[in-house]
Design a binder for these strands. Structure first.
Lengths: 64, 64
DNA sequence: TTTTCATGTAAAGTTTGCTTGACATTAATT
DNA sequence: AATTAATGTCAAGCAAACTTTACATGAAAA
């Protein structure tokens, strides 16, 4: 699964820490997701989607 | 988190078993999600979304 | 009525998402 | 050159997603 977190974070001028706080997870979780270590839960994906006002599918790209 | 799986399944005339096979999880997983026992992973939500051709957000309703 | 099918549920185990704490590295300030 | 801010990463642990096996129930069909 690929994602556009790093770019959106840059566009919104946020640090990983800022984003982590905004969606109520740890900084390490944001870092791990950006680095592709694991996928976010559905709830976290929804929080990020709402924050950045982007569809989940545009934020996270899953190709089988 | 609420969801519309049961209804969509009915509309598509599928059993829990059918749906489970279509998205490659166990029948119990589908049942548990329908019953609200836990939320699907992001990948599973995406598979269901694609199968039923509905946005994740319309399939799964999360209200803080 | 007996068999079959769809659903519900439970227990035990594995994997994955996420936590805290800690430390290393790199880039930007002072 | 020294400090600070942002990022990367690791380890140990907990919680949630998902598995298999198994059994119970109700509805439909033979």
């Amino acid at each position: 699964m690929k994602n556009k977190l790093k770019v959106l974070r840059a566009e919104h001028d946020m640090t990983q820490q800022d984003l982590a706080q905004a969606v109520e997870v740890s900084r390490q979780t944001i870092n791990a997701i950006e680095k592709g270590k694991f996928d976010p839960s559905l709830v976290l994906a929804m929080k990020l989607s709402r924050l950045f006002k982007e569809d989940i599918e545009t934020l996270f790209i899953y190709e089988d």
